[in-house]
Design a protein around this nucleic acid. Structure first.
Lengths: 417, 417
DNA sequence: ACAATTCCTCTCACGCTGAGATTAATTCGT
DNA sequence: ACGAATTAATCTCAGCGTGAGAGGAATTGT
C-alpha cells in the first residue's frame, strides 16, 4: 500500500546507493547524483548520521573561494558481513566490512568426516572466532555459505552433494543458521561463483552470462539480466546430468575430473588424473576429441538455452582448455546454431565463489538498510579494490581443534562445482 | 527521481488494476481491495471518470437499509487493441475492447507472394478496415503481431523465417509500424503463444513454463516467473538447431513436420506427411522410436535448462503425441535427470498465438494508462470469458483485393512455430 | 414522518518535498 | 587586517497528496 512515506524510503535508498560506492562525497555531489533537492539530501544525511551509517569524512580541498564542504562517507565500520566457500576439501571464509573490503580471511581443511551438526558447529565457530579476534567489535550481520551441492530454490534444503554428503537434507542448513544467530543464507557454489564474477569480475552485469564449473563434478550457473537463476529444486543448469543421445553416457562422464578418469580407464587409458590426459595430447587424441566434442555440445546447449554474451569456465578441469581451444569452440557453436558467445576462463579463479558469497551477504545487508534493489543495481563498486583487498588481507592461522594438515590447493580447485 | 507525485501514480495504478478485472465494483470494494483511504479512492475514481476511463455502472442492489452505492466499472469502450497472428498460410486478426473481449476477428489466407511493403500494407489495411467497420468509433491504440520467425530482442528486425521470407530484415517491421500509426510491436509467434497460454490458458502465471511449438518448424518459448524470455537475436530457445552429438542431424530433423518427412524418405519410408508415419506405428516403429527419443531428449534439455513446472506442446505436429506418450516422456526425464515437469498439449490450441498477441497489446495499453507492472500482474482476468468471447465473436468476411481462396485449417496448424 | 443505516462530500492536519531566504565559513584583493 | 565575493549549510515556508473525521445526502424500516 503506497503510503506517504514511500518517497522518503525511496530517496533514502537513492542517497545510500550513491554513498555505497565507498568514496567520500560532497553533499553537493549527492544532490546532483540523486537529483534530489538540497533540503532533502541534508535531512537524509542527518538521519543516516544519527543512525551512524554515515560519518563525516576528511575535508576535501577545493581550490576556489567560498566555504569548504564537509564531505561524508558511508561508515565501513557499521557492520561486518561474511562469505563462506565450503568445499569438499577446503573451507574458505572471508569477513569484510560494510563496503565489501576484506578484513580477515581463512582457509582450513574441511572436516569431511564430521556429521551435519558437527560441521555446522565447526563452521560457525570458526567464523565467530575470526570475528571476535579481528572484527574490532563491529557486529556481524549476514552470512552466506556456498555449498558443493544442489540447493533448492528456497534455500532450505540440499538435494544432493557429490563430495559432502552430510550437508544433504535440511539438517545442516538449520543447524548452521541457528549457530550463527544472524541471517544466514546458503546457495549453490556455482551460482555464487557466477554472482562473484558478475560483481567483481569483468562480466558486464546486465549481460546474460553462463558459468560452467568444471571440477570433480560439472555444474553451471546462469544469470539473465543481472539475476542468477535458481530453479525450484536447484537442478536448473545441472547439465552434467544430460544424457548424450545414442550413447550410454552423460555429459559429466566426459567433462568432470572424477568421471573422465574412470571413462578413460574403461577405454584403456590408465591415467591417474584428468590432467594427465591433456599432458599427452597425441597419445590420447581420440579421447580428447570426444572431450572437446562434449564441451562444444555443452556450450551449444547453453547458447541455445540462454543466448549468453559470455560463457565463463571455472574449476580445475577447465584449466586444461587453452584460449585458442575455447575460441575454436565459440566459432563452432556460432557456425552451428548462429549464437555467438565469448567463451573464456573466469577472471577470479577459485576466489569467485568466495567473493560471490560475500557479495550476497553484502546485498542482503544493504537491503536491510533500506536500499531498494533498483538502486542497489546502480551501486558503482570498485572491483579492483575489492578483489585486491581480498588478496591482500591477512589470513588467519589455521583452525584449532581440527587437524588442518592436508591442504592441497590443487585438490581444492578440483572440488569446485 | 522519486518526486512527490510518486504515491499518486502508484495509487492510481492500484485502483485501475482492481477495476481491470472487468467486474462492476463498489467504491467500498475498491477501498478494501487497495487498502487506500476513502478520500483517496473517491478522488482517483473522479479523475478516472473525468478521463472517461471509468463509467458509472448499474446500481447494485444491497438488501439492507441505507444509501445505495453507485458502482463503477472500467469503460470497455475506452480503446480497442489488436492482436495478429501472421502465419505462413493464414493471417488471423482479433480486435478487442479495453478489457480483452473480442469485438471482431478475421482469418484470411496470407498473401505469401507479396513483398515486404505490400504485405505490410495488406495487414494494416485489413485491420483498419475491420476497425472502421466494426469498431463503433472506438480508437485503436496498440497492435501486436506474431511472426513465424526469429525476432531480435529489441523487436526491430527479423533474423530468419522459414516460411515467410519477405519479413526478414527490418523493412517489413518498419513498414507495418508506419502503416498502423499506433504503437506496433512484433514478436516471435511461439513467444506470444506462450504468453497467451500464461494469460488465458491453465498455466499458473508465476510458474516456469516452456512451450514447444512443433509445426513445420520447431520453435520454443520460455517463461520464468511470469516473464517470457527473449534473447538478443531471438535465438533463445531455438532448440531445433541443436545438433545431436555423434550423428549428422539436428533436433528439428526429427521433430518438425517438414524435415521429418525428408528424413523418413531418406530412410526408405516414403510418406506424404509426418502424420502418415504416426498412422502406421508398427510399420515405422524404428523411425518413431527415434522421434520419441528426440522429443525425450528435447524435454530433457529444457528440463535441465529451465526446470519448468510444465512443458506444453502446440502445433500440428504435436497432435501426433498422445497423453500417455507424453506422460511416459515426463517419467523418463524425471528418472534420468531428476526434474519432474508435466508434459502436455496446450490448452488454447492454435488460438494461443492470437490471444498472446492480444494480451501483449492489452498490456501495453494498460501501461500507457499508468498501470505499473507490479499491479498489472495482479489483475484477475476471467480467462474463460475472454477465450469464450474469442470463439463466439463474429468473424469478418474474407479480405477483398487478395484471393483468399485456399484456406486449409490444417496447413495453418502446421505453419505454427 | 422519523429513526437508523449507509454512502458520499467536505474540511483539515500531517508528513514529506522543493524553493527561496538567511546565516556561516572561506578566499581573494586591497 | 579588513571587507567583498563566493560557496556551503541552515532555516522557513508553501505545495502536494494522503488519511481521518465531521457533516450532508440517499435509502429502508417502523
Amino acid at each position: 500500500m503506497a503510503t506517504t512515506s514511500l518517497p522518503r524510503t525511496s530517496n533514502r535508498s537513492a542517497v545510500l546507493a550513491a554513498l555505497l560506492s565507498g568514496t567520500e562525497m560532497d553533499r553537493q555531489q549527492l544532490i546532483s547524483d540523486t537529483g534530489l533537492s538540497r533540503a532533502t539530501v541534508f535531512r537524509i544525511v542527518d538521519d543516516l548520521m544519527a543512525e551512524s551509517l554515515v560519518r563525516e569524512g576528511a575535508r576535501v580541498l577545493r581550490d576556489g573561494p567560498g566555504r569548504q564542504s564537509t564531505s561524508v562517507a558511508f561508515d565501513d565500520r557499521s557492520a561486518l558481513v561474511c562469505g563462506i566457500d565450503l568445499g569438499g576439501t577446503n573451507c574458505r571464509v572471508v569477513v569484510a566490512d560494510a563496503l565489501g573490503r576484506a578484513v580477515i580471511r581463512s582457509r582450513d581443511a574441511t572436516p569431511r568426516d564430521a556429521g551435519a551438526d558437527e560441521l555446522a558447529a565447526w563452521v560457525a565457530g570458526r567464523v565467530a572466532d575470526l570475528v571476535a579476534r579481528y572484527g574490532d567489535g563491529v557486529p556481524l550481520t549476514t552470512v552466506t555459505i556456498g555449498l558443493p551441492g544442489v540447493v533448492t530454490g528456497d534455500g532450505r534444503s540440499v538435494v544432493a552433494s557429490h563430495n559432502l554428503g552430510q550437508i544433504t537434507g535440511t539438517r545442516f542448513i538449520e543447524a548452521v543458521s541457528a549457530r550463527f544467530g544472524v541471517p544466514t543464507v546458503v546457495g549453490n557454489d556455482s551460482n555464487l561463483a557466477l554472482l562473484g564474477e558478475l560483481q567483481y569480475g569483468s562480466l558486464p552485469e546486465r549481460e546474460t552470462a553462463v558459468l560452467l564449473a568444471m571440477g570433480t563434478g560439472l555444474g553451471s550457473a546462469v544469470s539473465l539480466d543481472g539475476r542468477v537463476l535458481v530453479g525450484r529444486t536447484g537442478l536448473l543448469g545441472e547439465f552434467g546430468r544430460l544424457p548424450l543421445p545414442g550413447r550410454d553416457q552423460r555429459l559429466r562422464d566426459l567433462l568432470s575430473g572424477a568421471d573422465l578418469v574412470a571413462y578413460a580407464r574403461g577405454r584403456g587409458a590408465d591415467v591417474p588424473t584428468a590432467q594427465a590426459l591433456f599432458a599427452e595430447p597425441e597419445k590420447h587424441a581420440d579421447l580428447l576429441a570426444e572431450v572437446h566434442g562434449a564441451l562444444t555440445h555443452l556450450v551449444t546447449v547453453v547458447a541455445l538455452a540462454y543466448e549468453p554474451g559470455t560463457v565463463v569456465l571455472t574449476g580445475g578441469f577447465s584449466e586444461s582448455f587453452g584460449a585458442a581451444r575455447l575460441a575454436e569452440i565459440s566459432d563452432r557453436v556460432a557456425e552451428a546454431v548462429g549464437v555467438r558467445s565469448v567463451v573464456r576462463r573466469a577472471d577470479l579463479g577459485d576466489s569467485a565463489g568466495l567473493l560471490g558469497s560475500m557479495a550476497s551477504s553484502l546485498g542482503r545487508y544493504y537491503e536491510s538498510l533500506g536500499v531498494s534493489t533498483a538502486h542497489a543495481a546502480s551501486v558503482a563498486v570498485d572491483r579492483d579494490l575489492v578483489v585486491g583487498r581480498l588478496d591482500a588481507c591477512p589470513t588467519a592461522p589455521g583452525a584449532a581443534g581440527h587437524d588442518a594438515t592436508t591442504r592441497t590447493t590443487h585438490d581444492d580447485q578440483m572440488a569446485e562445482g
